[in-house]
Design a protein around this nucleic acid. Structure first.
Lengths: 193, 193
DNA sequence: GCTGGTATTGAACGATCGTTCAAGTTATGA
DNA sequence: TCATAACTTGAACGATCGTTCAATACCAGC
């Protein structure tokens, strides 16, 4: 059923791509109006403000990331391999298909300050949810004996989060894929030891 | 000798703090005019444009970072310990004293796009210089037998770069220092193995 | 077919953006 | 002391920013 009412979900997705590619400040409402084919009045009726729309795109991005993580786990024979697939896909895959190499949440906490305190803490909170998801998967990996129990799942999840942030930032700064793949292998080798 | 001519170096330093804290787009020329106590004409006579000034601040930041790295090496008994001191200081020290937790160069490549291609590649180039400096120090560490020669200095320098980027981003996203210190110890433990 | 509410339109608002430049001020050398 | 060069000033420019709102178009229920 097609309605005259604009598709909210579609608008959020298109806005996400713009914000992800260009950041909060460098994306103007006029850029968004053009991308989603809505006039300012409709956008403001739906989302309230630029900040309101941006907040929804952050949540949309995080939701999509969680779904991709679940897919990677489901497609793999073990939890740890699923994690590696996810990280590989996040770091390498984003280079061509995604709007930016860098994680949108990391990009956001890098760009924003206390001038946009609510958006900043929203991004921080969503990042912590990712870490929690990592920890849950690592618990399974420990139970299945894939990794030893020398370190707590929380500590390893923290470690993985640092690696993912660092790898994606590094991938943005440097062109070659080969070196990055090598680095990812190093990360998962160190998890077994 | 105090001249009526404004102090270029001082202006660059103050502009660096502003750009580092708020990013390129969120820092207006009027913010800078106020911080450096210059009128627009003088600034544009000295630096040409906002982009020109920003480029100089990137170079100033990189120069200061290199100097701090040298200081850390000089203050330590071994190359590897000097590196650890540098990374510790970069990640923990920046939390209170510096304008931002995150490396200004990483923040820049996260924020900017091809709309500011020259600034983007300038930041990338300066980041590569840091990696080269890491590699040179790791060569010394290998010669002194601090770390084995299983991996090339370039590969380990790449690894360190990823860690530094990741740790500083993580430090921005999460409050506690203790967890970050733990993570840094993990990094240098893995370098010996 | 008419009516009442809901959604959309696009011109317009004041604020702020990066930048320019004629006018004014200060230092220099003869 | 005065002409000239060097530097600073601050008002002003056009463009664009996020946002508003009266006018218009649309559709459901009677």
């Amino acid at each position: 059923m097609t309605t005259v009412k604009h598709d909210r979900q579609d608008a959020v997705e298109k806005a996400t791509d713009l914000f992800w590619a260009n950041g909060f400040h460098a994306t103007s409402m006029r850029n968004i109006q053009q991308a989603v084919d809505m006039r300012p009045g409709s956008i403001y009726a739906s989302f309230g403000s630029k900040e309101g729309l941006f907040k929804e795109t952050l949540q949309h991005y995080a939701r999509a990331s969680q779904a991709r993580l679940n897919d990677c786990i489901a497609a793999s024979t073990s939890p740890l391999e699923g994690l590696k697939l996810f990280i590989r896909d996040s770091v390498i895959g984003s280079r061509t298909s995604a709007p930016s190499d860098i994680c949108m949440l990391v990009k956001t906490i890098a760009e924003l300050t206390n001038d946009n305190a609510e958006l900043l803490s929203e991004a921080k909170g969503l990042l912590q949810q990712v870490e929690v998801a990592f920890a849950a998967i690592l618990v399974q990996a420990q139970e299945q004996g894939e990794i030893n129990r020398a370190k707590t799942p929380e500590r390893m999840a923290r470690y993985l989060q640092v690696q993912l942030m660092g790898l994606r930032a590094y991938a943005r700064a440097n062109e070659g894929d080969a070196q990055v793949i090598e680095l990812i292998d190093d990360v998962f080798d160190s998890l077994h030891g």
